[in-house]
């Protein structure tokens, strides 16, 4: 219900203070997201700080078509990519050396190419319910952190930031076929890790 007595200015001020509160409540989420990409606490804090400032400055340009959180996350994604591109130009972005061998994949399969008993995929139940579950996301975060650094970086850029493998290859100076192998490993590792944490948590 609109309060006819409230001036436009009051309404704006109220809206602004609601959004400031919102920003401080999503801050931890933003920091953990940035940390996952940049793998450096100080840089992650800086990126989030810049994103928050940009969100406050550009508040008027928030069209309200998408959710406010999503909008702020969008700003942060650009900041993170900016930092990575800047580092690349400065020659400070470590080109990705693939530290993992195919052992990870090999361990999940038998010699004949079938699943090993311990890594045979089981049902996770209804996908919509899974995605909505807080427990799933806690396990997901823990499993992302458990990934080897470069694997996590490539997976994040592809799936969380939505870059194409072509863009990732340009940024990290790797061949596309290499990128595909890394993503395959990342998914196999995440799948196995999530299944372990997920099912154990369910029965706990």
């Amino acid at each position: 219900m609109e309060d006819p007595a409230a001036s436009g200015g009051d309404r704006l001020a109220k809206q602004r203070s609601i959004r400031l509160e919102r920003l401080s409540s999503i801050r931890p989420k933003l920091v953990s997201f940035a940390r996952m990409h940049l793998r450096d606490n100080a840089m992650a804090e800086d990126a989030v700080q810049e994103a928050l400032m940009a969100a406050i400055e550009k508040d008027a340009t928030f069209a309200g078509r998408s959710g406010y959180d999503t909008w702020v996350f969008g700003i942060l994604k650009y900041k993170i990519l900016d930092i990575m591109r800047y580092q690349k130009r400065q020659g400070r972005l470590q080109p990705l050396d693939d530290e993992e061998s195919d052992e990870v994949i090999d361990r999940q399969f038998r010699k004949n190419g079938r699943w090993e008993a311990h890594s045979r995929p089981a049902s996770w139940g209804d996908p919509d319910a899974v995605i909505e579950s807080q427990h799933f996301w806690r396990v997901f975060d823990a499993c992302m952190i458990a990934l080897p650094e470069n694997t996590a970086r490539v997976f994040s850029l592809r799936e969380l930031m939505g870059l194409s493998t072509e863009e990732i290859c340009g940024l990290l100076e790797i061949r596309e076929s290499n990128c595909w192998v890394i993503l395959h490993r990342a998914r196999l590792r995440l799948r196995q890790c999530i299944e372990k944490g997920w099912l154990e948590g369910e029965t706990a």
């Binding site: 931890p28 989420k29 933003l30 953990s32 997201f33 959710g67 959180d69 999503t70 996350f73 699943w115 045979r120 995929p121 089981a122 049902s123 996770w124 996908p127 899974v130 995605i131 909505e132 807080q134 799933f136 996301w137 997901f140 975060d141 799936e159 969380l160 939505g162 998914r187 995440l190 799948r191 999530i194 299944e195």
Partner: peptide, 25 residues
């Protein structure tokens, strides 16, 4: 087993697109 794996890869893909939206920390 591979049908489950296929579903899980797809779920990961879809979950990641919504990362940070429904995800409370």
């Amino acid at each position: 087993a591979c049908r489950q794996c296929d579903r899980q890869f797809r779920l990961l893909h879809e979950a990641c697109r919504g990362y940070g939206i429904d995800h409370e920390v």
